[in-house]
């Protein structure tokens, strides 16, 4: 079975990134947006693993990078969910479109 090349992995990562991006833009509910942001984060990790496996880059660096990336994403999700819950408790909705009081 044909070996999977670097370009294939990068393309996969790019595709995943695009899916996540589209999800973030078109979603109405905040939770939906959070989930799609997570997909984008994962696509970056796939990208890193692709480079680690196929290109001559020092593998250790790639692993550090992806571990730190996961740390960052975990922190973001923690804060994101806290905010969404707080908003829900206050405004009884997590639909982003309803939250348009601040403008101008």
């Amino acid at each position: 079975m044909p070996t999977v090349g670097l370009t294939a992995v990068v393309l996969l990562a790019a595709a995943l990134f695009a899916i996540g991006l589209y999800g973030a833009i078109s979603n109405d509910s905040a939770i939906g947006i959070l989930i799609s942001l997570e997909i984008m984060a994962i696509s970056i990790t796939v990208n890193l693993m692709g480079f680690a496996r196929f290109s001559s880059v020092a593998q250790a660096n790639a692993w550090f990078f992806s571990v730190f990336l996961m740390v960052i994403t975990a922190a973001e999700i923690g804060i994101g969910l806290a905010l969404v819950v707080a908003v829900y408790r206050r405004a009884r909705t997590s639909e982003v479109d309803d939250l348009s009081e601040l403008k101008g």
């Binding site: 973030a24 833009i25 109405d28 982003v96 479109d97 939250l99 348009s100 601040l102 403008k103 101008g104």
Partner: peptide, 17 residues
């Protein structure tokens, strides 16, 4: 310009992209 700042998050995301 202030009209563009409508407060809708979706609009902002679309503007950024």
């Amino acid at each position: 310009l202030r009209r563009v700042q409508t407060g809708h998050l979706q609009r902002y995301q679309r503007l950024i992209v």
